[in-house]
């Protein structure tokens, strides 16, 4: 079986044309990045504001929980029925999947900032937005990034559904492999998805190094 998969990977036709691995991989990355960016643009501001003000937090968490409970297939189907096949339904379904972890982690990250630090910031004369941007956001960043990474892995893994609405992506190999009864094709497509998930994990580790303040990273490990 491993040999079959290797064979599938090395077949020359896999690497060229509109149905080849590079194109499918590119589609998959494109759909995933788009969904993640849109989700972050929605979830991070909402999480920051609700976490900062403490108002609407319950509503935000409830929305996130509903989002978690939504069956992705159902969302996809509903939007397809409403708007037809294409990129839009896939993105809606993926965004519904990605918003909850980012939203919850952003909210928790801001709420989790030590009240003492908030008190110090206000006591020194920081205004609301300054407290949010100079204190709460940097401190919540590790948790926000973690939420985004979780969302990214879920999105990458779930973006295979794009194949069902006819816009390709790595899911194409899985679906085609099933209909053609070619196990090596399903395995090959899956391996590519896992590879992408690992790349995502690595990228987030890198991102964490770049954007998380040094004072937060290099801390002595707590005992326990």
């Amino acid at each position: 079986m491993i040999l079959d998969v290797l064979d599938w990977f090395t077949r020359s036709e896999q690497w060229t044309g509109s149905g080849g691995i590079p194109v499918r991989f590119g589609e998959h990355v494109l759909y995933s990045v788009l969904a993640l960016v849109v989700s972050a643009l929605i979830a991070v501001p909402v999480g920051l504001v609700t976490g900062h003000t403490g108002r609407g937090g319950f509503a935000a968490i409830t929305v996130a929980n509903v989002g978690r409970a939504l069956p992705t297939i159902g969302v996809l189907t509903l939007v397809v029925l409403g708007m037809g096949l294409g990129l839009f339904p896939v993105e809606v379904a993926l965004v519904a999947l990605a918003v909850p972890p980012i939203l919850v982690n952003t909210y928790e990250g801001v709420r989790g900032v030590d009240p003492l630090l908030r008190d110090a910031a206000q006591g020194m004369g920081m205004r609301g937005a300054q407290v949010l941007l100079r204190l709460e956001l940097p401190l919540a960043l590790p948790l926000i990034l973690l939420g985004m990474r979780t969302a990214a892995i879920q999105v990458v893994s779930t973006a295979t559904i794009a194949a069902y609405v006819g816009i390709g992506g790595l899911g194409r190999f899985i679906v085609d492999g099933q209909s053609r009864r070619e196990i090596e094709m399903i395995l090959g497509g899956s391996l590519l998805v896992v590879l992408l998930a690992l790349v995502v994990t690595g990228l987030f580790a890198l991102l964490r190094r770049l954007v998380v303040a040094r004072g937060l990273r290099a801390r002595p490990a707590a005992t326990g």
Binding site: L116, L117, A120, A121, G123, M124, G125, L139, G215, L216
Partner: peptide, 29 residues
């Protein structure tokens, strides 16, 4: 906010910002 910037404020356990260096903490106000 303007009033607070004109008054020094020291709290329990210092309340230093963990993501900023010592000099940047002092430079806050």
């Amino acid at each position: 906010a303007a009033l607070r910037r004109s008054i020094g404020y020291v709290i329990q356990q210092a309340g230093l910002f963990p993501h900023r260096t010592v000099e940047d903490n002092i430079a806050t106000v």
